[in-house]
Amino acid sequence: MIDTITLEVARYRPEQETEPTFERFEVPFNKDWVVLDALNYIKDRLDGSLSYRWSCRMGVCGSCGMMVNGEPKLTCATFLSKYVPGPIRVEPLRYFPVVRDLAVEMTDFMDKLKSVKPWIIRQEERPLSEGEYLQTPVQLDNYKQFSMCINCMICYAACPVYGLDHHFIGPAALALAQRYNMDSRDQGTDERLDLLSQHEGIWGCTFVGECTKACPKNVDPAGAIQQYKLKAATEWFKSFLMPWGRK
């Protein structure tokens, strides 16, 4: 068993440098430690200026996504022992602008989330006095998978389409739109479809499928997008064949 392991951590101090560099840190090796524990060790004992985001340390807040040896990972769920004997290369999430060290800029992502109208849209609200909307476990199961997204942005870091074109709405936001479309309580599918069938929407996706593989929560954004494409295509055919029909 080894005693220590080396981390090569990307550093970017915009007030001093124009591009990122790597810094090597040697940390104790502990089989119970995840990459995030090692980063915390560095910040507490070796270099207090290392900057990164983290919070829950239980894979649900979505803060600590980083590239670990070239793969996007939640660092709180990535054990050091997987990378023995090292070194382990830790970088900020790919395809996002780097603000500092391991922290990326995410306002673009936040805007995209909002752009898909991720809330229940109803023609008519049901008064609270009439109780809940009934929803069977099967109806719940229809969208449940897409509601599990923790917004960690790992799917964006896995998606070359987003890397090449930042206008692409991207996997998480499209899956979120699908989450509401598939919810039996929602009536906003048409409203969302116009927005999402634009070029930057579903048709931007070339089905690389890496988002689904990288997702730590099994959300399957690639599946959501393909299902959406199928729906958009059928809608288009319908309106083409029966222009007098809907809308």
Partner: peptide
């Protein structure tokens, strides 16, 4: 000042899954 890395023209050659795609 944000640092944005330019995506390499050969991005598809760097990762087996991208290459397969």
């Amino acid at each position: 000042k944000w640092y944005r890395e330019r995506v390499s023209t050969y991005w598809w050659a760097r990762q087996w899954s991208y290459f397969r795609f």
